[in-house]
Nucleic acid binder design. Structure first.
Lengths: 350, 350
DNA sequence: CCGTGCCTTTGAATCGTTTCATTAGCACGT
DNA sequence: ACGTGCTAATGAAACGATTCAAAGGCACGG
């Protein structure tokens, strides 16, 4: 029943033409007369012929595939970025294949090897640890690489990333604009550069504003539970020592804090306490009080990464570019009292 | 600087051996003398030679790659399944490449085409719509396919899936075992087979138990907000009409219900009302009251899917198998009053 | 009737690797 | 000296598609 896969030669035989003609039907239909084209197409359909990409690529020297290696496909940031990258690649006739390194350098290395052997056009990598040596080796062999969510300190390859300092700054600016003065920053010990950057931005905003004070509270982890612990501690302070605005280094922490202050102390959000998170995870919009957050422009990053890569593929000599996006503030109920929905007709003033 | 990629011939020339010898060093090192092996290896390192997978595959006739097409990489079920599949494949010397159909039949079709052209060993597919025609075509050409989270009604290909009837049954059994008798099922209009199955299971459990009653409440969507609406309606009932147990068709609904009943009516969970969800999303464990839920055995499903596929690849004539897993109940605070953690030493009695 | 130009089709060369039948080289026993 | 047995290395033939120079067919004008 199952003979070996159908090749272009089988198609040629059945259609009674030469191999080259079949190839022309597939790649340059205009060169072939309508009658022949139909006959060949019929043979293709009859036999269920499927092009062999390996042979194709061997001849062509390169594929139409882009490799994307992410730290964690489960992370909404990466899955959404991947989706955008796929769309952008598709518009340019390429296909994205995804590899999940799971933060493991070994797995990352395996995917890099596999993709290189597959002669992908180029790779988008959100690297696990030290980018240096591995990317260096790739580049030496002429493989275009764009870093995602990370910049190459030596500027050897293009990258797309987000300015977390700006994100921290805009978060706290937003609290200040809402009239808050006693601000608390919740984060883990600043070994993660991202957390440190967000704090730096927060500090800048506070320093620019007379009369505002910033207190840093350390959490055990970037989780809801750790946030709840912090929230409980804060909720038990005396009235004079309560903050009126809290900026958490991510949304999970913020949700934990929210749970604690609502239930233990019965504080009102945002009236007594404004709360803002970071990352804008799916869940934030449907927290008890919808959570204001700072969002990375994920889709834009995915598309831009692909565009930078395609540019490098087309013109290998072109200059590398470090694109750094500003994040975006998403205002919700945890910092702003509810107003009528924008879509509803404005009532006549009277 | 960038000449064309290094081929096995370049390596052979530099090492002063024949092409076949280099190939032997790569594929059958034992056949080559130690001295030659070292010399060739040295040349490989010097030149930065990377095997061309296309040529390799062309000769071999098939790749060491498995294609996995999922409905949504952002969905934790699929990302975790993908991770498990990758691990299992790696143990068997294969690599998983991931395609995200995003519930779009067109994208699904494109990935199927790309993977087939790449001559993957086989595919794991969680199909968008009607499986029939497309899979039929694949099978006719001898491509092994295993369905994920869906069974083929015609039993033409193997599959791994979950028994949602059993899941609904065990959820309600759990409520009954905790002494609840007035049970509410919250779900959308039963157009989704999964929701319908869960309800069927719930019905079975209630019917087996004298004195238990099941009420079905319809939600507008499977979201937190829809759940909150349902919860508000329930929370406003008179005391005699309140249920003492609620089973929601997914965790998002359950979290919405929880938010509403806790805040509006101030009911205690689980004392006044036991609550159970479905899917065990990450967030459930860190809800205000940790949510009891029903979990699919994701890792097991991923590994099993790969194993079924590998079996079919090895022995194409072997029988197809429909593997249906029972889900697993994850007990948390929303149905069970807190007890000392299992790990803590039991205090001496008396 | 023949040359010219145009469109269609052909067939061979090519890509980089693996495989396998041969050959080369060498030591050993007779 | 010569055959035997063995390991190590060789080189040519695949694999399936693309490309391109060349040939074939045909109509038309001279």
């Amino acid at each position: 029943m199952d003979s070996r896969p159908v090749s272009i030669k089988d198609v040629a035989d059945r259609a009674g033409v030469a191999i080259g003609t079949v190839s022309n039907v597939l790649n340059h239909p205009a060169r072939v007369s309508a009658a022949t084209r139909e006959r060949v197409q019929g043979a293709i359909d009859d036999l269920g012929f499927v092009r062999n990409d390996a042979a194709r690529q061997l001849r062509a020297g390169q594929s139409r595939t882009i490799g994307l290696i992410v730290l964690d496909v489960g992370n909404p940031f990466f899955s959404s970025l991947a989706r955008a990258a796929e769309d952008c690649a598709a518009e340019n006739g390429s296909t994205v294949v995804l590899g999940d390194s799971g933060q493991d350098a070994g797995r990352e290395a395996r995917y890099i090897d596999v993709f290189e052997q597959q002669r992908v056009q180029g790779m988008l990598i959100s690297p696990v640890g030290d980018v240096g040596p591995r990317v260096e080796a790739l580049r030496k062999r002429g493989m275009p690489v764009v870093l995602v969510d990370r910049v190459d300190p030596q500027r050897r390859c293009s990258s797309v990333s987000v300015d977390d300092v700006a994100g921290g700054y805009m978060a706290v600016r937003h609290l200040l604009a809402a009239g808050r003065r006693r601000i608390v920053f919740v984060g883990t010990r600043a070994d993660y550069r991202q957390v440190a950057d967000r704090l730096t931005g927060a500090r800048q905003a506070v320093e620019e504003h007379d009369g505002a004070v910033l207190e840093v509270v350390e959490a055990d982890a970037m989780t809801v539970l750790a946030g709840r612990d912090v929230g409980e501690a804060i909720a038990q302070r005396r009235a004079g020592e309560l903050p009126d605005g809290i900026f958490c280094a991510n949304d999970l922490l913020a949700i934990g804090v929210m749970q604690a202050v609502l239930l233990i102390r019965g504080l009102r959000i945002p009236e007594d306490l404004a709360l803002i998170g970071y990352d804008d995870i799916d869940f934030s919009a449907s927290a008890v009080v919808p959570l204001t957050s700072v969002r990375k422009p994920t889709e834009l990053m995915g598309r831009t990464a692909v565009e930078l890569l395609l540019e490098e593929i087309e013109r290998p000599a072109s200059r590398r570019r470090q694109v750094i996006f500003d994040p975006e503030l998403v205002e919700r109920g945890s910092t702003t009292a509810l107003v009528p929905a924008a879509g509803s007709p404005a009532p006549a003033v009277g």
